[in-house]
Simulated assay, not measured.
Amino acid sequence: MSQPATPLRPLVRHNLRVDALSVSGDFDVIQQIVDVAPGASSPMHMHGGVELTTVLEGEVTLRREKDSSVKTYKAGEMYMVNAGEFIQVSNTSQSKASFVVTFLLPKGATLTTNK
């Protein structure tokens, strides 16, 4: 007699814990999954709340206006952007990139403002 099959279970591929984030007040939590085609980029923009981003597939290049820094994040890596910080996101690779972004947006704040 064969053994019963082990039931399939969810597999955690990524676990994010942010210890240093301190927020108070009323917030909306907005989560988006964004696909970025090869060669595509966003305009320089800022968000009205804190942004927590995890790259799911490919790689994403983040340019921060405040210090002109440029850093590329690969699948499994994450970054945080403070409210009001101007950034640009691009995919300079030859493959599609995807990321999941979670915003903590104060009630009444505008999600995205382009420069």
Rank of each mutant, 00 (worst) to 15 (best):
D28F: 08
Q3Y: 13
R17K: 13
E59G: 02
Q3G: 08
G49W: 00
K74H: 15
D67A: 05
A75F: 13
P10K: 11
T112D: 10
G76H: 09
K115R: 15
F86I: 11
D35I: 03
R63K: 12
G108M: 09
S41I: 02
V23Q: 09
T92L: 14
S22P: 02
Y73C: 01
G39E: 05
P4C: 12
A20E: 10
E59W: 03
S69W: 05
A83N: 13
S41C: 04
V101T: 15
R9C: 10
A5Q: 15
T61H: 04
A40T: 01
R17F: 09
K74Q: 14
S69K: 08
G84L: 11
G25S: 06
G76V: 12
E85P: 09
V34N: 10
D26T: 11
G49H: 01
F99T: 09
P106E: 10
Q3I: 14
Q32H: 12
Q3V: 12
T53E: 03
K66C: 10
G58K: 00
G39P: 08
V101E: 13
A75E: 15
T92G: 15
A109N: 15
R63M: 08
M46D: 04
F99E: 12
K96L: 14
G108V: 07
S90M: 14
G76W: 06
S98W: 05
Q88V: 09
V100G: 03
Q94E: 14
V70F: 04
L11W: 00
E85I: 15
I87Y: 08
Q94A: 13
K96P: 04
H45A: 01
G76S: 14
V60C: 07
P106V: 06
V12I: 15
A37M: 09
E77I: 10
M1D: 12
T110H: 05
D67H: 03
S98P: 06
A75V: 13
G49A: 07
T102Q: 00
I30M: 08
S68A: 15
Y79S: 12
S42V: 01
P106F: 11
E57A: 03
P7H: 14
V89E: 15
I30Q: 09
R64G: 02
V70S: 13
E65T: 06
F27W: 06
T53K: 00
L111S: 03
K115N: 12
T102W: 02
P10D: 12
N91M: 10
V100E: 02
R64T: 04
G84H: 14
D35K: 11
T102M: 07
I33Q: 05
V34I: 10
F27T: 02
A40Q: 08
I33K: 04
H47A: 00
E59Y: 00
V29F: 01
P38I: 00
P38Q: 02
N82R: 04
P10I: 12
R64M: 02
R13W: 10
V55F: 00
Q94D: 15
H47N: 00
T61D: 06
S95T: 13
G84Y: 12
Q88C: 13
F99H: 15
